[in-house]
Simulated assay, not measured.
Amino acid sequence: MNLLKARMEKVEQQMRALAEASLVLARGLEAGPLQEAGQAQPEHAARLAHELLLAAGLVQREGETS
């Protein structure tokens, strides 16, 4: 039972990381209400989302193999 609980906690943590990365991407792709059109920062959002996924252990750095 402890193994199942640990696996569920890991899945929940991964889901939170995926949700946070998705939110960062969405916010980076949309311009805020006070920004001019074309002022979104998709490159920054993509980099931050990637860093979140790396920190959560959901993706590997380029060039790394498992």
Rank of each mutant, 00 (worst) to 15 (best):
E12W: 00
E30R: 15
R16S: 09
E36C: 07
M15F: 01
S66L: 15
L29V: 07
R7S: 09
A17E: 00
L58V: 06
H44R: 15
E51H: 09
E20Q: 14
A55E: 09
M15H: 06
H50Q: 14
E62N: 00
L58F: 02
P33Y: 05
Q13H: 14
P42V: 09
M1K: 08
G57S: 07
L29C: 10
E20A: 13
V59M: 05
P42I: 03
E30V: 12
A45P: 04
A46L: 15
A31P: 03
A56P: 05
Q60T: 09
P33I: 11
K5S: 06
H50S: 09
L34D: 07
E62V: 14
H44T: 14
A46W: 10
E12R: 14
V24K: 04
Q35F: 05
E64W: 10
V24W: 03
A55G: 12
M1V: 02
R61Y: 07
Q41I: 11
K10P: 00
G57L: 01
A37Y: 07
Q13I: 04
V11F: 01
A21Y: 00
G32S: 09
Q41C: 07
Q60F: 13
Q39F: 01
L53Q: 05
V59R: 01
G38F: 11
L53N: 04
G38Y: 10
Q13W: 09
R27G: 06
K10V: 03
A45Q: 00
Q41Y: 00
L3K: 10
L4R: 12
A37K: 14
L34Q: 11
E51N: 07
E43L: 14
L48C: 03
V11G: 01
L58K: 08
R47H: 08
E20M: 08
Q60W: 11
L53W: 04
M1C: 00
E51K: 15
L25R: 13
R16M: 09
L25K: 09
E36H: 12
E12V: 12
K5E: 09
V59P: 03
E62Y: 08
A49G: 06
L52C: 04
E43A: 14
L23M: 13
A55S: 12
V24R: 07
E51I: 06
L4F: 10
E64C: 09
P33V: 08
G63R: 11
E30S: 12
L58D: 01
A21N: 04
